[in-house]
Design a protein around this nucleic acid. Sequence first.
DNA 1: ATGGTAGCGCTGCTA
Length: 263
Amino acid sequence: MRLATWNVNSLKARLSRVEAWLASSSPDVLCLQETKSTDAAFPAGRFATLGYESVHHGNGRWNGVAILSRVGLESPRPAFHGEDPAAVTECRIVAATCAGARVVSVYVPNGRVVDSEFYVAKLEWLARLRAELDATCAPGAAVAVCGDFNVAPADLDVFDPAQFAGATHVTGRERDALAVVLRWGLRDVVRELSPDGPGPFSWWDYRGGAFHKGEGMRIDLALLSAPLASRVTSAYVDREERKKGTSGEVPSDHAPVVVDIDW
DNA sequence: ATGGTAGCGCTGCTA
């Protein structure tokens, strides 16, 4: 099974690239973040034509998450369990069972400024994600939590730790909150297969030619429970997708993270 | 050189 996660920074603006990437990379399951789409506008029909079932949770303009699968998509759940999806103001989590694996697509809040109300809400959101796993899954089952975590887990995940010292995405409290999620029983398989850094980065600022200068961060993660992690054959970032297209199409500021699993 | 880019949507916010 090929499992991937990609923050597309607007599905409407990126649809042709997403469709091309599905055709060229053939993921079995793709988690999307920042669709900036409503459920009504989500192009489920286009994806169905390509052989993918899908579930989307979004209310337009900002945020929005989805899962596409061509290996079955059962028990879709937009929002945290027990939440009324229609009442959610920030759509940041959706789950579905694909080929017997519980797949969760997450878009963790950015946090904006350290110690701001948004930063506090980010820490709380990560704590809620851990509680969600405790309440809805077992670490002995096949579980994949994939998405844009907006946290660089270690200094190895930042191009210049000194430049980012004390900034959001790298603070100890954010890393601790992410570590609590991991301690539920998840493994960061890209880092396991690429123990040396810096990188591999998954996000580069649009500004200042950051991508071509190699100035990125690794904030998009595929976190797998032991039954899945033990069967991983490769895990990597598709940096090619971050380059501009020949027809001048703009890429997302994030690259897809891809995991191949003997599953 | 106190900036820069992209998306949404039409003004300034979010990232």
